[in-house]
Design a protein around this nucleic acid. Structure first.
Lengths: 145, 145
DNA sequence: ATGGATGCAAACTGTTTGCACTACT
DNA sequence: AGTAGTGCAAACAGTTTGCATCCAT
């Protein structure tokens, strides 16, 4: 049994979803997810757009935004709002879920803490709600040594 | 010894700050903080502006935004971004600090959990950073009974 | 062939900025 | 009197929308 690469699996998930929903398998959708999974870190809509234009793809901002929305709904991409009025995105399939520390110099530290899950569990019970996701950012600065 | 009302204390803090920094004690600044502390829940810049116009104050959006920024920096007001592209504000002096659960129907539940503090402490030690504040939102929906 | 998806540009929305005027110190 | 702060409107930036066209089915 062969291990599939992440991008292969991701495309398969997209494929399945499009078939199931009767949506079209346009080349743009695959080009965009391909590009997204080539990014190492966070990116914004315009960075994605520019990079695709530079690589001679023919895409529009509208399609970028449409596709990002689709991929976020499939949880293949995660959306962040670190600063105001600028959504950042991040590939999120096959990677460990994590939260972020945003430093003054715009450096971003990723971390994972199980206590956030236990807070979630407490809240679900306490308020009789189903929690679907969360957004957690700590803001700070490096200690001078 | 007499107990001061919250709005009195808040105005005194603003007063002290303005004196210390040599900034002017304009009537707009006091009118705005007065208005803010009359709101029971979260509000956005435009709600604040509209309410003040309705009450026949003469203020501009520029001053609203300037003053909100000032008050946030003094930690007399807290700024949230529940949805994109819309900052919400909330009075924050003399009230217990808390985080939020945002439900699908836009209902907002406030909660307080000490584990978030302990996560903060862990992170400060682990990454040698000083964390100044955080933003935590859970998103979910009410359970059907 | 048909209508879902795209590209393009214009519209939109919350916020910021420039500038002339006002009023606090 | 001098200048920080204001009101106003125009500018701005990221995102959304309307519409003609295209192309996956």
């Amino acid at each position: 049994m062969e291990k599939k690469s992440i991008i292969e699996e991701v495309k398969k998930i997209l494929d399945k979803h499009l078939e199931l929903k009767g949506q079209r398998k346009t080349p743009e959708r695959y080009a965009i997810i391909n590009e997204i999974y080539s990014f190492r870190h966070h990116f914004d809509a315009d960075e994605l757009y520019s990079q695709m234009i530079k690589k001679k793809y023919r895409v529009s901002r509208a399609t970028i935004y449409n596709t990002l929305e689709l991929l976020v709904s499939l949880e293949l991409v995660t959306r962040h709002v670190f600063k105001d009025n600028l959504a950042k995105y991040e590939k999120s399939f096959g990677f460990m879920q994590h939260d972020h520390i945003i430093l003054d110099n715009d450096e971003i530290i990723e971390f994972c803490d199980p206590r956030i899950q236990s807070i979630k569990n407490t809240l679900e019970e306490m308020f009789d709600v189903k929690i679907k996701n969360h957004s957690l950012y700590f803001f700070g600065e490096k200690n001078k040594k």
